[in-house]
Structure formats: C-alpha cells, structure tokens
Design a protein around this nucleic acid. Structure first.
Length: 288
DNA sequence: AAACCGTGGCG
DNA sequence: TCGCCAAGGTT
C-alpha cells in the first residue's frame, strides 16, 4: 500500500518478540488477559504472571468460578489491582452473557468491565483478527513522529489521531492486525519515548520528525504522577501485607504498615469500597 | 475532564 | 539520585 507498510511488516516479521499471548498458542482469552495486565505495566513483568494465570484459569469460566480474591492474589505485584477485580468481573459477564466465549465484536467487548477503547480494539484485533485502529501509547507516539513530525502526541488522544490511525490501516483484516501489532512493537523496541533507536528503524526514511530535525516537544507540560506519601502508596502497602498473609490480617498488623493513622484508615476504607479487601471477624482479608 | 489508581526499571 | 515512563480505565 504505502511506503510504510511493507518495511514495517518485514521488520516485525524479523524482530517481533515471542510472547505467550502471540502466535499459535494464543486464544482470545489469553489475549484478553494480556491486555488487562499490560494496561500500564511493562511486558517483562507481565510475562511470568500471565503464564501462571493461564495455567490456573485457562478459560473465562475457570476464572469466574474462583473467588475474586484469588485473582487479586495471583495478580501479585503487577500494580493497579483493581484491574484483577475487573478482569474477574469481565470473566463473570462473559459466562453470563456469552456462554463463556470471549465476544469478538468491539461493542460487546467495550461493554465489559475494565475494557476501554484501546482494550476493546486490541482484543477484537489480536484475538479475532478484526479490523480496528488500535491506538495505544506506542502507536500514538510512533504516528506523532512518523506522520505529524512532533516528538510526542497530545496529552489526551484526539479524534484526529484516531482518524489518522484508521486511514493507515490496511484494508485486509489479517494485514491490519499485523500492521497494528507491528506499530506497537516498533514503539516498544525502537521508537521509544526516550532515546529512540532511529538507526534501527525500518521507516526512518519516511519519518517526518527526523526530516524536521527532531524538534523537541513543545506542547503543554505532561504531569508526572506523584508517588511518595500518596494514598496509592499506602494502599499498595496494605495490599502487600494482606496478599502475602495466609488468611485474615488483624488490624494491628495493618497499622504497622503506615504511620499516619488518618491516611492509613482512609486508604483502608477505600480498599473496602473498591472490593479489594473485606472485613472479617479476624481482621481484613482478600474477598472470598 | 482532571485526578486517581501500583509497581519497578532505567538513565 | 530521582523523575520519567510502561499495550489504560473509571469517575
């Protein structure tokens, strides 16, 4: 089609990582599990957890039959444990609405808990070979550089980016899926946020950012997430204690996880509200 | 729609 | 060292 497709597809064929949710062994469910885990978490940390998860719960029905707390425990230290809860809820919905089969349409997927625009497009595309624009942080950055000639995409995804991604999508369904995963892989391995490896880029000759002389990002400041001292840190501490415990954790033991009483209790209350913890006669535990 | 939600690796 | 960032979603 364009001067972009052939070199990128060839590059992907030669350089794609061999990941458990790709290739012959992959199922729509394994793709779906990977997409949940990969929301804001790097591939290297997802891989081992994904393998164990698929051994434990090979189908949505297997996960739905387990207590949600088991999903949270198996989630381990991937971060954002609400994703584990949402994946469990999504599996339950799949059993109830679709007889245990991961749906293949974007709209059905999009209606599941924890599935937003990106994840719905990704599951439909990589799980079923459907043709959708898959606009993740990698694709947004690659297109910003390659086509728009800027270092970084806008802070929030725009309709223009969506239109651009759709306009570049190969017409053939199979090619479209490979094109999208190739764009993502290029962003992950070569066209990285910091220190892009342009010398290894298969489409460097077409790159608008390079042609413009690599102008630095000049948009609105991108807010970094604060961490130290936030409720998120406290929640993480509390969850780590309960996750690593056998059964319920007595309140005094949780109290040791954070000094500030007010903040600790607020964090604990929010975990209960989220359903990540439950209160029992013996203390606090993962939901049964 | 801006803020919130974990965790760890890297330069 | 420490800020940045990693296949986002929800409210």
């Amino acid at each position: 089609m364009s001067e972009l497709h052939e070199p990128l597809l060839a590059w992907y064929d030669a350089h794609a990582r061999d990941l458990p949710w790709r290739g012959d062994g992959a199922t729509p469910w394994s793709v779906m599990v990977s997409e949940f885990m990969l929301q804001q978490t790097p591939v290297t940390r997802v891989e081992p957890v994904h393998r164990l998860w698929m051994e434990t719960w090979p189908t949505p029905a297997d996960l739905a039959a387990a207590p949600s707390g088991e999903a949270v425990r198996a989630w381990g230290r991937l971060g954002y444990p609400r994703r584990a809860l949402r994946l469990h809820a999504a599996a339950t919905a799949i059993v109830e609405r679709y007889a245990g089969e991961v749906p293949s349409s974007y709209d059905d997927l999009r209606a599941l808990p924890g599935v937003g625009d990106y994840t719905a497009a990704a599951i439909a595309t990589f799980g079923y070979g459907r043709r959708h624009a898959v606009l993740d942080t990698n694709v947004r950055r690659v297109l910003a550089r390659l086509v728009s000639g800027v270092e970084l995409p806008p802070v929030a995804a725009t309709a223009g980016e969506k239109r651009l991604a759709e306009s570049l999508l190969p017409h053939d369904e199979g090619d479209a899926a490979t094109w999208s995963i190739a764009l993502m892989e290029l962003g992950a391995l070569v066209c990285t946020a910091a220190r892009p490896r342009c010398e290894a880029c298969p489409v460097v000759g077409e790159c608008a950012w390079r042609a413009a002389g690599y102008p630095a990002y000049d948009g609105p400041p991108r807010k970094g997430q604060t961490w130290a001292g936030t409720d998120r840190q406290v929640r993480g501490r509390l969850m780590a204690v309960v996750r690593e415990a056998e059964g319920a954790v007595p309140k005094p033991r949780l109290d040791r996880a954070w000094d500030d009483d007010t903040q600790r209790d607020r964090a604990l209350a929010s975990l209960l509200t989220d359903g990540l913890l439950v209160e029992t006669p013996d203390g606090y535990a993962l939901p049964g």
